[in-house]
Design a protein around this nucleic acid. Structure first.
Length: 224
DNA sequence: ACCCAGGGTCATA
DNA sequence: TATGACCATGGG
């Protein structure tokens, strides 16, 4: 992937979908909670679980950690996998409190913070990078299944590209710009919701102007 | 009824 | 290292 290719795809996504204003949260800790809750889960359902936590004043590390795990799971019910996610949230809080809280880890260098997050049970690469980018404003490019699907359709990466390889592919060709990375990942998610169902209509579904289901939002293909 | 959603862990070969 | 099973609710 060249810098020009990465930039042109971004321009097309932005023209098509507009700014996405991610991450929808009031605090860094709320981003961390949302990043765990949204694992393989529609954001709509995550919002309900977060509303439950807010109603019980649990959007704070020590109180969430002190909460009975079974009672926490009940509040997480709408976001699915509630038993798993209750344990994962508390594992994250256990580490966070031991590390000195959000203010303390905010001062850590990105690599140290990334390794520490990945060591928490229930935090994988994508969740860690969501937290690094959207909670701590580090220039880390978040990869997900949509990114791999879209860019392999565009012929810009292998269909089975690994997480780290793909992340470095983006970070190599784009400037380490937090605002750019923020918008880019959000736009890829927005684009995914736009793919023709039940089957993609074309290789770069649906970024091309002549896509049968593109409608009026279509943009011209960028010159090569 | 079926498939998917802003993944990750664990057991098995 | 590489699959498969599992977690579980809500919307199309």
């Amino acid at each position: 992937m060249t810098p020009g290719q990465a930039r042109r795809v971004y321009d097309r996504l932005l023209a098509r979908h507009g700014p996405q204003h991610w991450w929808p949260a009031d605090t860094a800790f709320e981003v961390m909670v949302g990043a765990v809750l949204t694992q393989n889960t529609a954001w709509r359902n995550v919002e309900r679980a977060i509303a439950n936590l807010r109603a019980d004043d649990l959007l704070e590390p020590r109180r969430l950690l002190a909460c009975d795990t079974a009672a926490l799971a009940v509040r997480l019910r709408p976001s699915g996998y509630f038993n798993v996610k209750a344990a994962r949230l508390q594992a994250l809080c256990r580490w966070l409190v031991a590390a000195g809280g959000v203010e303390a880890i905010a001062g850590w260098p990105t690599e140290k913070l990334r390794h520490a997050l990945l060591a928490v049970k229930g935090v994988g690469p994508e969740t860690a990078d969501d937290i690094l980018l959207y909670a701590f404003h580090r220039p880390v490019f978040v990869i997900d299944a949509y990114t791999r699907r879209l860019f392999s359709r565009l012929g810009l990466c292998a269909p089975d590209a690994g997480y780290e390889a793909l992340r470095h592919a983006f970070e190599r060709v784009l400037p380490p710009d937090v605002a750019l990375f923020n918008e880019y990942h959000a736009l890829i998610v927005a684009q995914a919701k736009h793919v023709c169902r039940p089957r993609p209509c074309c290789a770069d579904c649906c970024l091309r102007a002549d896509c049968p289901s593109a409608g009026s939002g279509a943009v011209e293909r960028s010159a090569g």
